[in-house]
Design a protein around this nucleic acid. Structure first.
Lengths: 184, 184
DNA sequence: CGGTTATGCTGAGGTTCCCTCGGGTTCGGT
DNA sequence: ACCGAACCCGAGGGAACCTCAGCATAACCG
């Protein structure tokens, strides 16, 4: 029943998938996540139907792009859980995620929408954040009743600001909010 | 040369303009600033060309909508300049602008783009903010080198968060950032 | 009040993008 | 070499954007 002895995926399918991911990454960096998918397909030398065959949804495409790059971010987050200074660790984490999420303009909005297709990435992300928040709180380094949700909102807002203001200005906002969150 | 003895504007033009503004306000509240302009025109009982005749650009339409409602906001801001507690005044101002800018989802992005069509509204807005910042700084209520630009960025980011998260969550973010900005 | 003229309205149409789907193609397996 | 599944193609129907040539009508004038 379950032993479906599935056939090896076709070589051209793999090629096209990689090509699409590469071009989508480039286009989204240039024009944001709202860019034309027909343009992506064109640049990848592939028909539009092929793109939809691999990625039924814009969000699915974005999710695939993120998956490919999340390993190191997660590794960094796990390492930070051992960091001697919980407050610094949390701040470092937030800044890392913001830099990551600002890769494509418009990504923050996609993440904030919390669609099913991004559940995996988001879940892991919030789990790490939650853990760092708990540790910081235990160390008495958190002001008031700051929660993991607050951290998530802050990361999204800062990532959004990075795409609509100068990065330097967005970083100032981030510093401000972190100063309000973390007891010096 | 300049004495062109211009003719009075047509009554139907004025009617259509008002109708368009009213429907645009309703539609933008429901669907955000990205809503279909053809839908707005339809709801206003007017052809699409009429809409473009009055408002050559989506941003121009938004600017007209804001103009109509900015009087009270500006009045509030001017009143706050006399408030006995400069820190409270600044916080109040930020919160008021954020509530205002969250009327339509997507408005924050439009404001952050700083197009010429919104120059008037934005200029006045930042001027009031700058004034309140200066007063707060003079009273020693501001942390570090916080600037008017920081306040502007914060307002935008918070307004964005309001449209993409729960308002309550966005307000928590705002409180956090204000706590980081204002010396208790 | 009718005529004149500027002002404003209309809606078809060119363009871009979205997404689907039937038919043709190509690859993996034998 | 050949079968069948897996995959690719691209036309095409929708929606929205924006323009523009021609028509309608409101303001002005005598």
């Amino acid at each position: 029943m379950t032993g479906a002895a599935t056939r090896r995926p076709r070589a051209d399918a793999l090629r096209n998938r990689e090509r699409l991911l590469a071009e989508a990454d480039a286009v989204f960096r240039e024009q944001g996540t709202g860019a034309s998918l027909e343009g992506v397909a064109r640049r990848a030398g592939v028909a539009i139907g092929t793109l939809y065959g691999h990625f039924p949804t814009r969000t699915a495409l974005i999710a695939a792009l993120l998956d490919a790059r999340n390993r190191e971010l997660f590794a960094h987050g796990d390492a930070l859980a051992e960091h001697p200074d919980p407050a610094l660790a949390l701040a470092d984490w937030v800044r890392a995620v913001v830099r990551h999420a600002a890769a494509y303009q418009g990504l923050a909005a996609v993440l904030a929408a919390r669609s099913d297709e991004l559940q995996d990435s988001c879940h892991r992300l919030t789990a790490i954040g939650e853990r760092l928040v708990d540790r910081a709180r235990a160390a008495g380094a958190l002001r008031g009743d700051t929660t993991g949700a607050d951290v998530f909102t802050l990361m999204n807002a800062a990532a959004w600001a990075r795409g609509h203001d100068t990065p330097a200005q967005a970083d100032r906002l981030l510093d401000l909010a972190l100063a309000g969150m973390i007891v010096g």
